[in-house]
Design a protein around this nucleic acid. Sequence first.
DNA 1: CTCCAGGGATGAT
DNA 2: ATCATCCATGGA
Length: 292
Amino acid sequence: MTKVRAPDFDLKKTLESGQVFHWERDGARFFGAIGDRAALVEQRGELLLTNGDETVIRNYFALDHRLREICASFPKDDAMNAAQQFCRGLRIIRQPKWECLATFICSSMKQVVHIRQISHALRERFGERRKINTRVVYTFPSADRIAASSEKELRQCALGYRAKNLLATARRVAHGGVDLEQLSILSDADLRSRLCELPGVGAKVANCVMLFGYERLRAFPIDVWIERVLRAKYFSRARKLNAGRLRAFTERYFGDQGGYAQQYLFHHARMTKTKARGKGKRGRFVTLSPVK
DNA sequence: CTCCAGGGATGAT
DNA sequence: ATCATCCATGGA
């Protein structure tokens, strides 16, 4: 058992905020894998690690991010203030690049609970089995392993049409000349366009991979949740609002720590959704104006 | 610009 | 027990 001091960190919020999908909670304990290593982590003031390497944990949970400075840099508005208060201690973690890319390819058109099932199915079928404290966890399968599978096998993991995309991208990463580590040297714009060349990767998935796998803290993924928040809180009177305008706004308004701002707004919106729900059959936010 | 694929949980009736 | 809704990429 290793103890790690972790101020300004909330393990539960971090692992349950929709940035990573394989951790399983049992009370206050989280079972999972960090790269190829099984991990059991619990927060009781300090972090308590079983089979944990302090250096690995500090890096994975980004305990070196200067969270107070990041939060202090957020724009001061009602939505951001509420999200910031709600998400205290939530950190953007550093995920292995392939695992992050593959998982977010599987995330398209899926909800969090579903993405977790897919992640688990892929791990159980193609990953490596590890035991920790009588529990079994699985590592995420390598690109080589996925590339060696078939679309049919992937579909059996409930991937649907994503199976073809995941297989094609795995092949490019395994032996198709795409070196995910090497992409780290690129600028944000170049990295984004290279990621978007991969099958199953559009702007939203690319931004997730940049943020969670490449530590590009400016990246601002816009999914339906965030779009609802932006429309309701920052564009309540806007008539025409397309993807380009939204992107321009988020880049300018949220700036260098936009990824953190996005994650806080996202998690806060999701966790308070029942209150925000309207009674009408079609509206989640009654204040929203129709788009097109 | 619009429409659709594919699918399992979730919520509404 | 049905029925509608959630979800984002890529192609038509």
